[in-house]
Design a protein around this nucleic acid. Structure first.
Lengths: 239, 239
DNA sequence: ATCTTATTTTGATTAAAATCAAAAACTGTA
DNA sequence: TACAGTTTTTGATTTTAATCAAAATAAGAT
């Protein structure tokens, strides 16, 4: 799995190296361990739609997205897809698999657009953890955060409706970047829909409602948040 | 929080001690560390409905249920409750909180029936982890399992319907115990409903359907699985 | 450009489950 | 046993979002 599109050894640009050095996954390691991990790491270059790994398959790597974005998703027998999360540059994924029975991952990962992913050797990674409880604590913190996120997600799915989930998603996405109130959707809307567990038609209608209420405006593939306070109010009152 | 109903120091029956010794949470520790954890542990005796801790409050303990059962649940501003999971004797909970920002737990815990819970000192626990990477690995394995369970739960909530969730729940509950096909619900049905994210009325109707189909029978607060193969078939075909 | 394809929106309809309301079945207690 | 309370079931109705179907829009290729 995931071996066809690999370049090794890794030659990384400096800004990528410093991105990685700051990753919560790696920052607790010594410089030496960090270098050794990089030496053994592989770059996966994926075309849009290309799979990185499939559910049920054991993984020998822990991943960090370097460019593009990766969807992590479940698939039912009938072919229905549910996107659990979307990893963007700097974000790690499949780190919990390293401690799972048989290292089997229960999810699929595929590129939503042309992407580069770095895969660290899981055995080597575990080896370094064995020598360093402080690194273990760093990883345990990461796993704890992951659990917290999933608990909140269950919360949103069970106690809140589709509109709430979309508004929450918009405000979350809005948190990170460059102050301006414009969110660029760099993936098709049906991807956002799957991420939010609604049908594309429903997402379209909800966006229309919010537009009609004067809370957002839509143009191209960008959503401008007109009334952030109003959106925030929707999260506390309704849902 | 959680200090009113505490007996300390702990005096435990032998079978409880051996239950604890086998807990995935504790088994990686040395006998000495295990004893020291027990020395600092507190027993919480809870009446039915009594809270163990509330969301938003920092926790200084990691818990294992000794008797009775504990519901772990979210609560919305409007007072709607969603039970995430139910801990029965031997099961640990709130172990991830120990690595969270400010040790803040985002869930509530309360007794579903008269219960005893042992709370280990989280600081001491972390201290022992610092001395032992192998214990860390044990905990990371536990956290990884927790993540896996939550991912599956998201899966069931988004890709499957209420009937699927109930049938899955019945078969999961059936896995553990003493071969016989009778599941005793030792909690009110509305608790099961909340756990499955359906309304009590809906649960009642689904149980009726399954009964009409000859898959189960209901009497008292027991569900007898008549056609286990038929139930399993429902998980693969429909959902 | 034009044609082709994929994505998104809109409208009409359906389905699953929630809600509302009330009856029935239990529980425990006096 | 009768009574007061809770829990569960049943029935009628509504709501939310899914589904089905088709039009509109956007994106790519020739």
């Amino acid at each position: 799995m995931a071996s066809e599109h690999v370049d090794v050894p890794v030659k990384l640009k400096n800004h990528i190296v410093s991105l990685l050095r700051q990753s919560p996954l790696l920052q607790a390691f010594s410089s030496e361990q960090f270098s050794l991990l990089l030496e053994q790491a592989r770059i996966h270059r994926l075309q849009e739609g290309e799979m990185l790994f499939r559910q049920g398959v054991p993984l020998q790597e822990i991943f960090i997205c370097l460019s593009g974005c990766i969807k992590l998703f479940h698939m039912t027998a009938e072919g229905h897809e549910k996107i659990i999360s979307i990893a963007s540059p700097g974000q790690n994924f499949a780190e919990a698999v390293m401690f799972a029975e048989g290292n089997v991952c229960h999810m699929n990962a595929a590129a939503l657009k042309q992407a580069e992913v770095i895969g660290f050797n899981a055995g080597q990674f575990r080896g370094f953890l064995e020598t360093s409880p402080s690194s273990c604590f760093s990883v345990m913190g990461l796993l704890s955060q992951h659990i917290q996120w999933l608990l909140d997600e269950v919360d949103r799915l069970t106690l809140h409706n589709a509109t709430f989930r979309l508004v929450y998603f918009l405000l979350e996405t809005h948190k990170h970047p460059n102050y301006c109130n414009i969110i660029s959707l760099d993936v098709p809307k049906h991807v956002i829909a799957s991420r939010l567990s609604v049908r594309p038609e429903t997402l379209s209608r909800i966006l229309k409602n919010l537009t009609d209420q004067g809370l957002i405006t839509l143009r191209d593939h960008k959503i401008e948040l007109i009334d952030v306070a109003g959106l925030k109010a929707m999260l506390s009152t309704e849902g």
